[in-house]
């Protein structure tokens, strides 16, 4: 839970301050490299924090101002509707941050094989 909150807040803050999307990969990776206890847990820390953050942010943008652009982009990418686009935004963040989180943990296990793990 701690990891989830940290990643959610840190990614949100860094994305707000800088225009880089890849914080969703960097933050969970660093967190799980230091704190990861299991692959599954580490994957979910990244996947859920970034996935939810992007889901909420995209939904908020959509409801506030971005309906027209989302419809046009959905048309461009031939994905049907802007709802699908919100879902795709979630899926991308979920996978990218999830694998980054998982990789952080696995690297930690490879680098420090002696460290106790949660598995």
């Amino acid at each position: 839970m701690m990891g989830f909150i940290f990643c959610f807040v840190a990614i949100g803050l860094l994305q707000w301050l800088t225009p880089y999307w890849w914080w969703i990969m960097v933050v969970p990776f660093i967190w799980t490299l230091m704190q990861g206890k299991s692959f599954r847990g580490s994957f979910l820390v990244g996947a859920l924090s970034a996935g939810l953050l992007w889901l909420i942010a995209a939904s908020w943008q959509w409801s506030r101002s971005a309906q027209i652009v989302a419809d046009r982009v959905a048309d461009m990418l031939t994905v049907g509707s802007s709802m699908t686009l919100i879902f795709l935004t979630f899926v991308f963040a979920f996978l990218a941050a999830g694998f980054a989180g998982g990789s952080g943990y696995l690297l930690q296990r490879a680098l420090f094989p002696g460290r106790p793990s949660g598995e």
């Binding site: 994305q15 707000w16 225009p19 880089y20 999307w21 890849w22 969703i24 990969m25 992007w54 942010a57 995209a58 908020w60 943008q61 959509w62 506030r64 101002s65 971005a66 309906q67 027209i68 652009v69 989302a70 982009v73 686009l85 795709l88 935004t89 991308f92 996978l95 990218a96 694998f99 980054a100």
Partner: peptide, 29 residues
């Protein structure tokens, strides 16, 4: 996934950069 997110592949935009709700197309409301 980073590659897919950061770089343009064929005619597709860089996915991560593009769908990022903080700086991608969602901002062009």
């Amino acid at each position: 996934l980073f590659w897919l997110g950061q770089f343009k592949i064929g005619i597709l935009p860089p996915i991560g950069k593009f769908v990022d709700p903080f700086a991608g197309f969602w901002q062009n409301g």
